[in-house]
Amino acid sequence: MLQPRRLPRPAPARVLALGAYLKNSACLVQGEALWCSPVHGDLGEPAACEALWASAQALRQAADGPIEAVAHDLHPDFESTRLAQALAAEWGVPAIAVQHHQAHIAAVQAEHGLRGPLLGLALDGVGLGDDGTAWGGELLLLQDGGAAWQRLGHLPTLALPGGDVAAREPWRMAAAAMQASGRSADIISLLAPAVGEPAVRLLSQMLARGLNCPPTTAAGRWFDAAAGLLGLSVRQSQEAEAAMALEALATAWRAQHPEALWPDLPMANGMPDLRALVPMLTQARQAAQTEAKAEAAAHFHSALAQGLARAALAAARQTGATQLALAGGCFFNRLLCAELHTALAGQGLKVWQPQQFSCGDAGLALGQAWAAAHALHRPAPAAPPPSLLELEV
């Protein structure tokens, strides 16, 4: 039987949330009680979908009363979304869509019982944005218990040449980063030795014409691009393999050079402009020396962290928020976390991260349930004052 945990603050409604597509799990919030299902895995597998259905039934039985809403991801094609909508219709309750990165930050808010406006850096591989594109490098502001949110900034947009396959082949993201930084002419000479000129030439044409190249702001794809530019990974056999190789190389170099500093990145769209790092990364690859690549990997981590800190502090000054949540799978990266905490130390911004729950998609359902519960009981906006014409009538 599922055992409840205790939330530091009560949820204002009894809500079942069905989680994300990757590393799916479900949860139920009811006052200060929280029930979490096991992690089911990715919903591309039939067994994971069956396990999610079984967990939804078990969580409903654990509730002390009727479910008031079923929360789900914004993506309409996820099996978790379809199941949420079906259950909501069956039970006669609302199905509430919660944007992926809003849910990441709301999960931190729920776990720690945070009040007031909350800034959030949500960095991961993919999540559908409210504009229909793939997000993943987001600076958000959450208010009203996570029910209301605003996108304050995002990392530079990259093309995904070939669509989803680009997330499995870092050389494609390397090409996309070169194109985004105005270095398209060098794509073939840099990447052809690794994957062959015909493949690179075809990809260059796709990028130039924008064919099958959907945009993304995902931090995970920028990590892939950096690893691809340094020649650390061509194709990934496991998720985040390229990013972990980049982190390992950078961590080893940073341990030997703890005082190293690099110039600040320019800012764009309220976030660090990682396009400015592409020349440095390509030069390190061309140097063909492990030391040069290791320093470049460390430079990438430090520059990203420093830029994220500057973005968060600027947003804090703009909004008056004094708390910052860090969430999304990129924060499994210990070096990035350490660099970011160092950059924010003593700046008056309290930083929160998941402790008992995953910072990745396995912890997303909690944020969905929390945001949806507050949306369900959010006060209706006040009616506008009557116009002069209405007063005359």
Rank of each mutant, 00 (worst) to 15 (best):
R285Y: 13
L249P: 03
W222M: 02
V393P: 12
H257P: 11
C359P: 12
H72W: 09
W149E: 01
R151N: 11
A122C: 11
V234L: 10
E68A: 14
H374P: 04
E239F: 00
G328T: 04
G136C: 05
R5F: 14
Q283T: 07
G196F: 06
E392R: 12
E32R: 15
A294W: 04
W262N: 01
R254I: 06
H341F: 13
R6S: 12
G113T: 00
A63C: 09
Q150G: 08
A226Y: 09
A13K: 10
E247T: 08
E390P: 00
T217G: 02
L160D: 06
G146S: 01
V93C: 12
P117A: 11
R60V: 07
P258F: 04
L52P: 01
G44H: 11
L344Q: 07
P266C: 05
A54Y: 01
W352V: 02
G220Y: 07
E138A: 03
G360V: 03
G153K: 02
P76L: 13
D77V: 11
K23F: 13
R82Q: 12
F357Y: 15
L211Y: 13
A159N: 07
H72Q: 14
D124W: 11
A242I: 02
Q205E: 14
P266I: 07
V29Y: 08
A175E: 03
L277H: 04
A58F: 00
H112Y: 00
L249F: 04
A106Y: 09
V351Y: 03
R209L: 15
A69W: 00
W35Q: 06
L349T: 04
G231M: 03
L366K: 10
Q306F: 03
L114T: 08
C49G: 13
Q109C: 09
E169P: 05
R60I: 08
P263Y: 03
V93N: 06
H101P: 10
A371E: 12
W135H: 14
V234Q: 09
D130L: 15
H112K: 08
A309S: 04
P381W: 11
L155P: 02
P379L: 11
D42R: 13
G210T: 04
R6G: 00
